[in-house]
Amino acid sequence: MKDKLNARNLVSALLVAGLLLLPLYSQASGNVFVLTLFTRIVILALAAASLNLIMGYGGMMSFGHAAYLGIGGYAVGILAQEGFGSGFLQFPVALAASAIYALVIGALSLRTRGVYFIMITLAFAQMAYYVASGLARYGGDDGLTVYKRSDFGGLINLSNRTQFYYLCLACLLGVVFLIWRIVNSRFGMVVQGLRSNEQRMQAIGFPAKRYKLMCFVISGTLCGLAGALLANNTDFVSPAVMYWTRSGDLMVMVILGGMGVLFGPVVGAVAYLLLEELLSQVTEYWALIMGPLLLLVVLFARGGIMGLLGRLNRG
């Protein structure tokens, strides 16, 4: 499909431009906080984008996606604690651990569908949560402080706020680009076909489970990257990042932004986390306002913000 100048693409382009220029604004205005906030937003947008691959394109409602944030984070934290500070080791381990977890969980969960799939992915993520809580050597319930961020030699310094932000942003844009290639590839066509009508896809000759599992593993691996970045961002990793409410947050970001739309989760993550930040400055009961807002979006803006923009364009 050709790129068109429509509301959706315009918003996506403006958002990317804004994210690219943010450190300049932060520097000029001396507002350091905004950069810290947006580093977190960009990392969670990456996690949401990975979730969108299975949820939006693949139709697999995983309610346990936060597990990968923890697995990626603990890979960094545990290796750092054990004296392996190199990012060249930590990041590949974080990705590999996430991939293996996804492979095992996916192989088991994909035997079910619908509500059962949601519940079983949730159950596995809660298991991961309790396993992390039991890691006495690595802080248990209290979590694990990462005293030194991943060391990438002279290549990039993660302790430099701006450099770290750009690393996260590069990862996000890289992942979005990768997902764009994937969903338009043969593989992506099959995955979306399975979302649409699995029986038909089997009848024309596709072994459904294999493709779904592969998609599940890719998604989990990409989310593991977000986990590794998140641990570096907070210099800390705890079981809480795997808690089911965090998985719910990621789902909300995807739905809010627009499922199955490339930049949907990025828009959703920015909107959700900014709103959370703003509302929490106004009142500590911010969730009371956030809840109804989300309800309105689900009820009246099907397809999320991107869906709304899409309709806007059609007039």
Binding site: R181, I182, S185, F187, G188, F206, M214
Partner: peptide, 25 residues
């Protein structure tokens, strides 16, 4: 066209191809 192309794709080798745009094959 996508419906029919997918049927053809199912019988033209495996579909673990992640990069090339399938609509341009």
């Amino acid at each position: 066209a996508d419906n029919v192309a997918l049927a053809a794709q199912a019988h033209a080798g495996h579909s673990f191809s992640f990069w090339r745009n399938a609509r341009k094959e």
